[in-house]
Computed example of a mutant assay.
Amino acid sequence: MKIAVFCGYNFGEGQEFRRAATELGSVLAQRKIGLIYGGAAAGLMGLIADAALAEGGEVIGIIPKALHAREGAHPSLSELVVVPTLQDRKDRQRDLADAFIAMPGGLGTIDELISFWAMNQLGEMDKPIGVLNVSGYYDSIFSFFAQAQAQGFFTAGNKAAPTVNDNPTQLVDAVASRIRVT
C-alpha cells in the first residue's frame, strides 16, 4: 500500500506544520504504508521523508526534471523518479499511489489536491483523498467550496469528497480504511 502526500517545499510559519509532517511520515512507515512525495529534501517535503526513512519506511520521490536541476532531490530515498513535467509527476503519482493526502503547502500542493479530487469526481480514478488541515490551513478553501455549492457550481457529499482531519494518525487510519485492495 502506498499513499502520495502533497506538501510544501517550505516549512510554513509555525512549528505545528513541522510536527504534523514528522508525525505523518512516522505513522505511514509504522503502518507499513509507502510514501510517495515530491522528492525534495527541503521544507515539509524533507521532514516527511526523513521521518518515514527514520522508521524504516519506503519513500519514493517523484520530481520534475526542472526542479531536480534547480533544487536537487533528497539523497536517501528508496527510489527517485525524475519526470519531464509537473503533469508527468501527477500521472506517476496517480499510477503508483493507492490514496492521497494533502498537507499544507503552496500552489503546487493546492493544484495536486484539486486535480486528484476532480479526477475522482469525474470517475477517472476512484482513490481516497485526505486533507491534513493543520491549524485550519484549508478552512478558507472549504469555505469557498461551500459558497460554490450554495451558488449551484459544486456538488458536495459525493464519494469523491476528501476526508478532512487535523490529526495525522487519525487521517492516515481513515484514508487507509477506504483503500480498495485488489
Rank of each mutant, 00 (worst) to 15 (best):
E16L: 02
Q170E: 15
P162M: 01
G106C: 02
K32G: 04
P75C: 03
R178C: 11
G8N: 07
K32L: 12
G157C: 03
V5R: 03
F11K: 12
D166V: 12
G57Y: 06
Y138M: 01
S76R: 12
G39D: 06
Q151Y: 10
A52W: 07
A102P: 01
R19T: 15
S26M: 11
L107M: 13
F17G: 02
A176L: 01
G136W: 11
L113W: 04
V83D: 00
D95P: 11
T169C: 11
A97F: 08
A20P: 02
P162K: 09
P104D: 08
Y138A: 09
R180T: 15
D95F: 11
G57L: 02
G108Y: 10
A73Q: 05
L47C: 07
V81K: 12
D139C: 08
T182D: 14
Q30H: 14
R31Q: 14
Y9Q: 03
V131D: 03
R89V: 11
T109P: 01
G39L: 02
T182Q: 13
T22W: 08
I33E: 04
F11Q: 03
E16T: 09
G46N: 07
F145M: 13
I62A: 08
D88K: 10
E79A: 12
R89F: 02
G136D: 09
N10S: 13
I101W: 00
D126V: 05
V175N: 03
Q121P: 01
L28P: 05
V134K: 07
A176H: 02
V27T: 15
T169E: 15
P64N: 03
I63F: 02
H68E: 14
G8H: 13
L24I: 09
G46Y: 08
Q147R: 06
N167R: 12
I101E: 04
A21W: 03
A49H: 12
E58W: 03
S76N: 12
A174M: 04
K127H: 07
I110L: 15
I129T: 06
Q147K: 11
M45H: 11
V27I: 15
F154E: 11
P162V: 06
Q30R: 15
E23A: 08
P128V: 02
G152K: 00
E55T: 07
I114R: 01
D50K: 13
D50H: 10
I179H: 05
R19F: 12
V172D: 11
R18I: 12
N133A: 04
S115V: 13
V27R: 14
M125A: 14
G25Q: 07
G25Y: 10
G25E: 00
A69T: 13
K90E: 01
G123K: 14
A49D: 00
A21T: 11
L171T: 09
I36M: 08
G61F: 06
D98E: 11
G157L: 07
Y138P: 10
G56V: 07
G105D: 02
I141A: 09
G43T: 08
M1S: 01
A51Y: 08
Q147A: 05
E16A: 14
G157N: 03
V131T: 12
W117G: 00
L24W: 11
N10T: 10
G56P: 09
A4R: 04
